Amino acid sequence: MKKSIFSLVLAFVVVAMACSCMSCKSSRKSATEPDTVALVGPTFCADSAYAFCAKQCSFGPRLMNTEAHDKCGEWIMKQFASYGMKVEAQDAELKAWDGTMLRSRNIWARFRPELTTRVLLCAHWDCRPWADNDPDSTNWRKPVMGANDGASGVAVMLELARIISNDSTLNIGVDFVCFDAEDYGVPQWSSAPDSQDSWALGAQYWAEHQPQGYEARYGVLLDMVGGEGAKFYQESVSKQYAAEIVNKVWRTASQIGYGSYFPMQEGGMITDDHVPVNEKAGIACIDIIPFYPDCQQSSFGPTWHTINDTMEHIDRATLKAVGQTMVQILYSEK
């Protein structure tokens, strides 16, 4: 997934964080620190989200044009349908960077489709075919299990769908979209010209082939939201297109006790599924994606595009922080 371009200010992140930690010793509350608020909506169950993540991995790597991919897609659709969602498959043949035709399936599950006030939640469900960022070069052509990079975002959405289906107090519609063919971008070992357009193929197709008249108040992309030690900095494309939504989500996380997971600092500029949602679909969409400023392996974390992206490195606490924040966001909408 995704190439990243980091802003110059990130060179000073470590220093800024150190200074911030020193200032935390003061017992006086910062004037800009959000006040705490009461939780609204149902409780997000991290154990359930973890189980949804593990179930996806049980199919094996969900690689394009494979049986594991197709079976997992059918399971995802059945899960959403079991929660009373209106579920649709958007199938397409998409051409990859190397000429391979990919049998792509975007999955769209709609909660209360009759309502016109809607929020879009999305994640990708396919896996990277090549562990091209693995520290061992002999693994570069092996598939990635995608426990975090793929399964975690879908797992959070499935748990959100489960709990809101059992609650009658949410008065807005929610669209859950699982994008396919996100992670088939040009590998680092290839001599082919790198291209941002080789990523997020499913999201590009979805953005260009929406039902006529579809509207969403805003969108939130959940990408790699279950990793150990994850912190979600404010992504730059998100701030460019949807600064108010970024502020809302990060403020809300702080207000309900998850501010340590959502630093009020800017991260990198990421090529991800939210780019076509913003630029082609015209829906203001943000990306909740981790940034590891001190990780030598990758700023996306030590397991990104490696054979180690497995369930052993999924953290229930991270799933909980993201999931409960999204519950608070949805149930705070008027």
Results as ranks from 00 to 15, higher is better:
T138G: 11
R112S: 13
A81G: 13
K95W: 00
V9E: 13
T271A: 13
Q328E: 08
D70S: 10
L222Q: 01
F291W: 11
G323C: 07
P61M: 03
L158C: 10
P211H: 09
G268S: 14
V225Y: 08
A131M: 06
N166Q: 15
M269Y: 08
F176E: 02
T66D: 11
C21G: 15
R128D: 07
Y331N: 00
K71Y: 02
C19V: 12
E74N: 11
A243Q: 14
R62A: 01
Y50H: 10
E33L: 08
Q79Y: 03
T306K: 05
N247V: 06
A216F: 09
C72W: 08
E67I: 00
I288E: 00
T325W: 08
V249S: 09
Y331L: 10
A317M: 06
V177W: 01
T252M: 07
A54V: 04
E266T: 13
F59E: 02
M77S: 10
P61K: 07
Y261R: 13
M326C: 02
S236C: 05
P290D: 07
M269L: 14
G84W: 06
Y83W: 04
C45A: 13
K231Q: 14
I5G: 08
M85H: 03
R128G: 09
A207N: 09
S48N: 10
R316Y: 02
S137L: 14
K239D: 05
E333H: 09
Q240N: 04
N247M: 08
A68W: 00
P263K: 07
F111R: 01
R112E: 10
T303W: 05
I107L: 15
E312P: 12
P113W: 03
K280P: 05
M17Y: 04
I163P: 10
S152L: 10
G268V: 04
C127H: 06
N166P: 04
I163Y: 11
G173V: 05
D132T: 15
A181R: 00
G229Y: 13
V144T: 14
F300E: 03
M101P: 03
I314T: 12
L319V: 04
C127R: 03
I270A: 12
V14A: 15
M101V: 06
D175V: 00
A192L: 01
N139V: 14
T117A: 11
T310A: 01
G257A: 11
D315Q: 15
M77L: 09
N148D: 14
F52I: 06
